[in-house]
């Protein structure tokens, strides 16, 4: 079980900002909550935005947009992927 890290908070903050989730506070997003579909309700445009975010903030370049599906499952999953692959 991953514990809440600075990375988790940072991710939530950038998601709220980048995706214009005006009605939300970063703390409203739970670590396990699905980001797409029934959870937070993000869509395919958000997925593309998250790909830009990965590259901009963590130097991770996804070659296939489809890869996002396995990474952008939840904040936990994203944080784990970033920890393992970040170049900055």
């Amino acid at each position: 079980m991953l514990k809440m890290t600075d990375l988790h908070t940072e991710l939530k903050e950038s998601i709220v900002e980048q995706l214009n989730l005006e009605e939300m506070e970063p703390a409203d997003i739970s670590d396990e909550e699905p980001l797409f579909g029934d959870g937070l309700g993000l869509d395919s445009i958000d997925a593309l935005e998250l790909i830009v975010l990965l590259e901009k903030d963590y130097g991770i370049k996804l070659t296939e947009p489809e890869q996002g599906r396995e990474i952008f499952v939840s904040i936990n999953k994203m944080a784990q992927f970033i920890e393992e692959n970040r170049t900055k």
């Binding site: 980048q18 445009i45 935005e49 830009v52 590259e55 901009k56």
Partner: peptide, 9 residues
């Protein structure tokens, strides 16, 4: 470089 797609869409 590294452009957000939303405004384009």
């Amino acid at each position: 470089d590294l452009l957000n797609p939303t405004p384009f869409i």
